[in-house]
């Protein structure tokens, strides 16, 4: 779905009215639920479950992409650095999946959630499923994400859900380092050689349109924001833009000119075609031999 990046309404309220049935709300295969007093708690749990999957899927899919670099990095030291980021991300993903499994209460494990859900049930950001491309694309993807993810997790540190707050407190330290690493590379590439500059400019042009998803709220996000579990994503936009702008400036780069933007992965499981292949590979062992211990 093409849409322009929605600007934050001036002084918009923290609480949103009910907006059930709106496009971008319920996933295609989810039971539609109305929040009535009788199933309010079940409704909350369902929203929390889905919120946790978004966090887990995003970390996991990005970890997977970074894992593809392992052994193929531009220099040994960088290979090690990138794998460290991947390891942080898989650690975060596991914590979210484990919690999601408990919240759902159907006995699904972290691995059931990671390896046995179909593509349409994955709710990672579209940005992180994009193929690695060259090292400029990988670093541009990483930086755009890290800058946002750091803001998100700083907010999640203050989550009213103690478990999420605890995960976030640990993750913030890791993500702070990720952002330092990726922003450093954006600067080196932007203000490096002609070739590196051409490549990093092209990378941002290819990727910027996927960042609209960072700030787009659906019912689940709003429900989580209402009870103080997650932040109002719109509120992350200004600080994110300021951070990205500052790093681009240091890299002597302009804001990308691309005006397109897309949504779909995080809310609805409508992905680019890349995710299907990623999952086909990732899930192949579990799918080939169902129900075994590994």
């Amino acid at each position: 779905m093409a849409c322009s990046i929605p600007l934050p309404p001036p002084g918009h309220p923290r609480k949103y009215p009910e907006m059930g049935g709106r496009e971008g709300g319920e996933g295609w295969n989810r039971r539609q639920k109305k929040a009535t007093p009788m199933n309010a708690s079940a409704d909350h749990n369902d929203a929390l479950f889905r919120y946790l999957l978004r966090l887990g899927d995003t970390s996991h899919i990005l970890c997977h992409r970074l894992g593809e670099w392992c052994g193929h990095g531009p220099i040994m030291e960088e290979d090690i650095a990138l794998t460290n980021v991947a390891l942080d991300l898989i650690g975060q993903a596991r914590l979210f999946y484990q919690y999601a499994g408990e919240v759902e209460g159907k006995g699904r494990t972290e691995d059931d959630l990671a390896f046995l859900r179909p593509e349409r049930d994955f709710n990672n950001l579209l940005l992180v499923e994009q193929p690695n491309g060259d090292y400029a694309k990988t670093m541009a993807r990483q930086f755009l994400f890290d800058a946002w993810n750091l803001l998100l997790f700083r907010a999640l540190e203050r989550s009213t859900d103690a478990r999420i707050a605890e995960i976030a407190a640990k993750a913030v330290k890791e993500i702070t380092y990720h952002r330092r690493h990726s922003s450093g590379w954006v600067i080196r590439m932007g203000d490096g050689t002609e070739e590196s500059r051409t490549r990093i400019v092209a990378a941002f042009e290819q990727l910027m349109g996927f960042t609209a998803e960072f700030f787009h709220m659906d019912d689940v996000d709003r429900q989580m924001a209402e009870v103080g579990i997650g932040p109002d994503l719109e509120s992350l936009r200004d600080p994110w833009m300021a951070d990205v702008e500052a790093v681009l400036a240091e890299a002597t780069l302009d804001w990308p000119t691309a005006t397109w933007s897309v949504l779909g992965g995080r809310h609805e499981g409508r992905h680019t075609e890349h995710l299907g292949y990623l999952l086909a590979e990732m899930q192949s062992t579990q799918r080939q031999f169902p129900g075994l211990n590994w």
Binding site: M189, S196, R199
Partner: peptide
């Protein structure tokens, strides 16, 4: 494939 990356870092430094 990594040559331009290493080169860019040196040029920036």
């Amino acid at each position: 494939d990594g040559a331009w990356v290493r080169e860019a870092a040196l040029a920036h430094a």
